[in-house]
């Protein structure tokens, strides 16, 4: 039986793991490779690294981070942040990534999704969507540039479009919930998973064991992602998997 996946996420800036709340207020949390080795041994099912480095100059160092992290892993690695072209995708795959996640660049130039899927296969392309609940209307709006810029796009419609264009999975982050530890945005997850056929990774808001079960069982997610909750060891992956088994969730 296909297992639900538990995915730790490393947000990396200038070679260091960082974490913020609601996409701001970053604090440093250590060496990415050390985190990767820990999660590999803890039974994580996959790892995501997102490069949140601001400038293109500094971004070059990300290749070395990916190489080092990939060499520490015997589980799959997804890499995102600043990927703007098929060549960028190739660089990350050559550095040891199995999949790449696209975000800002695919909103600005949606053809990028199909280019990446044509070259490397849909299974390689994870569409990252950062969404915030609209204040004045129903639905959720897509944001880019790490949550700094609204796009006017509806998150559910955009999810359908990225699937149509060849994405193989969606990494859905609720900006309202990110870093708050009050639970995944279940209505957002339900709205998306009802409309797309590709798997969806839930991100943003996990704070308790129950939140993970909600994301998987109620939200319809295929995988659940969290960052600081795991980094601080507030919750361990073996404990989480034991709990999920008691809730009838198939885990490895």
């Amino acid at each position: 039986m296909l297992r639900k996946r538990i995915i730790p996420c490393l947000d990396v800036r200038n070679g260091t793991v960082v974490k913020g709340v609601n996409f701001v207020g970053l604090r440093e949390m250590g060496d990415p490779t050390a985190h990767a080795r820990y999660y590999n041994d803890e039974g994580a099912d996959e790892l995501v690294i997102l490069d949140i480095t601001a400038s293109r100059e500094e971004r070059r160092s990300m290749v070395h981070v990916v190489e080092s992290v990939a060499d520490a892993l015997s589980i799959p690695l997804t890499v995102g942040g600043g990927i703007r072209s098929a060549n960028d995708v190739r660089d990350m795959l050559n550095a040891g990534a199995d999949r790449v996640s696209l975000n800002t660049a695919m909103v600005q130039r949606p053809d990028l999704i199909q280019e990446a899927a044509d070259h490397f296969g849909s299974q390689c392309v994870v569409a990252a969507i950062d969404a915030r609940k609209r204040a004045d209307a129903p639905g959720w709006e897509v944001f880019i540039y790490g949550g700094h810029e609204p796009t006017g796009r509806d998150a559910v419609a955009w999810a359908c479009e990225v699937e149509e264009r060849g994405a193989g999975e969606i990494l859905l982050t609720s900006m309202d919930r990110d870093g708050t530890q009050i639970g995944y945005d279940i209505p957002l997850l339900q709205a998306l998973t009802a409309k797309v056929r590709i798997p969806v990774i839930a991100s943003g808001g996990a704070g308790t064991l129950e939140h993970f079960a909600e994301g998987l069982l109620e939200g319809g997610a295929s995988a659940v992602l969290a960052a600081s909750l795991f980094h601080t060891r507030a919750l361990t992956i073996p404990d989480l998997k034991s709990y999920l088994r008691t809730q009838g969730v198939p885990v490895r």
Partner: peptide, 10 residues
């Protein structure tokens, strides 16, 4: 079921 088939299976 969702496609692709992504994850750990027997």
């Amino acid at each position: 079921l969702p496609v692709p088939h992504v994850g750990w299976n027997d």
